[in-house]
Simulated scan of single mutants.
Amino acid sequence: MKSITESLAQDLGSRLLNMGLTVTTAESCTGGGVASAITNIPGSSTWFEMGFVTYSNQAKVKLLGVSPETLEQHGAVSEAVVREMAIGALQQSGANVAAAVSGIAGPTGGSEEKPVGTVWLAWACDFKPEVVVLGHHFNGGRSEVRNQAVMAALRGISEMIK
């Protein structure tokens, strides 16, 4: 029996393939989980361009072009940073669609303002002017937060290409 994540990734792959589109990921708290879910699907090399695991702020700046000022003003787990991550991934990869995720998976690292489970996701397309950004608060431990973030990223890509 397929997992929800596997079904989401397989459905996404079919849609991307049918539309002739490619996708890229920019991930922090998921540590490559979105890219892993995608590349678990046979044939994904035809619709998955590349993935960026930018766990540190330095990596976000160097690989995705996230502004150090944005990081300083808003923090890595923010609407502004995931927006820049998605745009940067799109520009650096040459893919048609990008998903970005940054969050606090726990069990430590949270604050009153940004508790454990806070996750921001963004999606950008080279054929749409807007970047979609959503904030979530996922419940559960580290694995549950990360898994929910992966599923949300996959669902968001599908929504972007409708």
Results as ranks from 00 to 15, higher is better:
Lys2Phe: 14
Ser3Ile: 04
Ile4Lys: 14
Ile4Thr: 12
Glu6Tyr: 13
Leu8Thr: 09
Ala9Arg: 06
Gln10Ile: 09
Gln10Trp: 12
Gln10Leu: 13
Ser14Tyr: 10
Ser14Pro: 00
Ser14Gly: 14
Leu16Met: 11
Leu17Arg: 13
Leu17Thr: 12
Gly20Thr: 07
Leu21Lys: 15
Thr25Ser: 15
Thr25Pro: 12
Ala26Trp: 00
Glu27Arg: 04
Ser28Lys: 02
Cys29Pro: 06
Thr30Ala: 05
Thr30Lys: 03
Thr30Ser: 11
Gly31Arg: 06
Gly31Ile: 06
Gly31Trp: 08
Gly31Lys: 10
Gly31Asn: 10
Val34His: 07
Ala37His: 09
Ala37Glu: 12
Pro42Lys: 06
Gly43Cys: 12
Gly43Gln: 11
Ser44Val: 01
Ser45Ile: 05
Glu49Ser: 15
Met50Leu: 09
Met50Ile: 10
Gly51Pro: 09
Phe52Asn: 04
Val53Thr: 15
Gln58Trp: 05
Gln58Ile: 05
Ala59Asn: 06
Lys60Tyr: 07
Leu63Glu: 12
Leu63Arg: 12
Leu64Arg: 03
Val66Arg: 07
Ser67Asn: 14
Pro68Ser: 05
Pro68Asp: 11
Glu72Ser: 15
Gln73Pro: 01
Gly75Leu: 01
Val77Asn: 04
Ser78Lys: 04
Arg83Ile: 00
Arg83Ala: 02
Glu84Gly: 08
Glu84Pro: 07
Glu84Tyr: 06
Gly88Val: 04
Leu90Lys: 02
Ser93Thr: 04
Ala95Glu: 00
Ala95Lys: 01
Val97Pro: 05
Val97Arg: 01
Val97Ser: 03
Ala98Trp: 01
Ala98His: 06
Gly103Asn: 03
Ala105Lys: 04
Ala105Val: 06
Gly106Lys: 00
Gly106Ile: 00
Pro107Trp: 12
Gly110Trp: 01
Gly110Lys: 08
Gly110Thr: 08
Ser111Lys: 07
Ser111Trp: 12
Glu112Thr: 15
Glu112Phe: 13
Pro115Thr: 11
Val116Gln: 07
Val116Pro: 08
Val116Phe: 10
Thr118Leu: 12
Val119Thr: 05
Leu121Asn: 05
Ala122Met: 12
Ala122Cys: 13
Ala122Trp: 05
Trp123Ser: 09
Ala124His: 02
Ala124Ile: 02
Glu130Asn: 13
Glu130Cys: 02
Val131Met: 11
Val131Trp: 10
Val132Pro: 06
Leu134Ala: 10
Leu134Ser: 14
Leu134Tyr: 09
His136Ile: 08
Gly141Asp: 15
Ser143Gly: 05
Val145Ile: 14
Ala149Thr: 03
Ala149Tyr: 00
Ala149Lys: 00
Ala149Phe: 04
Ala149Cys: 02
Met151Gly: 01
Ala152Leu: 02
Leu154Glu: 01
Leu154Lys: 04
Gly156Leu: 02
Ile157Val: 15
Ile157Cys: 03
Ser158Val: 00
Ser158Asp: 11
Met160Leu: 14
Ile161Trp: 11
